[in-house]
Simulated scan of single mutants.
Amino acid sequence: MRSIVREWRMAIEFLTRIPLPQSGQADFDENAFIRSVRWYPYIGLLIGAILAAFSYVFFTWLPPHAASVLLVIAGIVVTGGLHLDGLMDTADGLLSGRDRERKLAIMKDSRVGAMGVIAFVCLFALKWALFSAVGKHNPLLLLMMPAIGRTAMVGAIAGYPPARQEGMGVHLAGRVSSSQLALATSVLILPLLFWQVKGFVIICICWLAFWWMARIIARSLGGLTGDTYGAICEVLETVFLLTAVGVLL
């Protein structure tokens, strides 16, 4: 039980900016960090519950467009913009038109280029519009959105080699066991329970989007990186919302 609590703590500290009391354990445990990956989709449910609560408050007291913008900002605050940073770096590298090594170097650069800014603006605008459509009366969509994105992250970590010999990808890629992957992906049972056949359709479309995106990135870079994990998470969140709004609403 203590090890599971530590894994949850590591996952929350890595994926969010939710303040936690000091644990008194200063040493980094790489094995626990690897095992914590299996809890990423469930940390996504936690993030989704927070967003659903914010949504109820924002849409109760504010006009829909203002509430939607604040909800997007709330998501950035809760996660610290971790995955958006990965999205922007990935866009700068992949869309640069350079060779593999130069793409990886661009992604490693802390500065944001034009493609990164364009990707951020497009995703922000699309989430804003989708949150306006969801409103406060569909909390299950907000609950599942971050979970779907982080399930895609686990799939990317488990299924693709690292593109570099250093960084997050090297520590995690290919080191997620089948049992850990099964536990992580079991969160996908929830859309089936919530929406039955429509939930199955949504999952299938999200899976196709994940497969296409991960394959394109892996072909271009020779594998995946920590930045691309974040990009996949952000894009799959948006694909889920877009599909769910189209299918359910």
Rank of each mutant, 00 (worst) to 15 (best):
1 M>I: 11
4 I>M: 15
5 V>T: 12
6 R>Y: 12
13 E>N: 10
14 F>V: 11
15 L>Y: 03
15 L>G: 00
18 I>Y: 03
18 I>R: 07
19 P>F: 11
21 P>R: 06
24 G>I: 09
25 Q>A: 15
29 D>C: 07
32 A>K: 03
34 I>G: 08
36 S>A: 15
36 S>C: 10
39 W>H: 14
40 Y>E: 07
46 L>G: 04
46 L>M: 15
50 I>M: 13
51 L>W: 00
52 A>R: 00
54 F>N: 06
54 F>R: 02
65 H>Y: 02
66 A>S: 04
66 A>K: 12
69 V>S: 11
70 L>G: 02
71 L>M: 07
72 V>Q: 06
79 T>A: 12
80 G>P: 02
82 L>I: 12
86 G>V: 07
87 L>R: 06
90 T>C: 07
90 T>Q: 01
91 A>W: 06
91 A>K: 09
92 D>N: 11
93 G>S: 08
94 L>I: 15
95 L>R: 09
96 S>V: 05
97 G>V: 04
98 R>A: 13
101 E>R: 10
109 D>P: 12
111 R>P: 00
111 R>C: 04
112 V>T: 14
113 G>C: 05
113 G>V: 05
115 M>H: 15
116 G>M: 07
121 V>E: 00
126 L>K: 08
126 L>V: 09
127 K>N: 03
128 W>P: 01
129 A>T: 13
130 L>R: 06
131 F>L: 03
132 S>D: 04
135 G>F: 04
136 K>S: 13
137 H>Y: 10
139 P>G: 09
148 I>M: 15
154 V>E: 00
156 A>S: 14
156 A>N: 07
165 Q>V: 09
166 E>G: 04
167 G>N: 10
175 R>N: 03
175 R>V: 06
179 S>Y: 07
183 L>A: 14
187 V>C: 10
188 L>M: 14
190 L>N: 00
194 F>L: 10
199 G>Q: 00
201 V>K: 02
202 I>H: 02
203 I>S: 04
206 C>D: 10
213 M>I: 12
215 R>Y: 08
217 I>S: 04
222 G>E: 01
226 G>V: 08
228 T>K: 05
231 A>T: 08
236 L>H: 08
238 T>R: 01
239 V>H: 02
240 F>A: 13
245 V>N: 00
247 V>D: 00
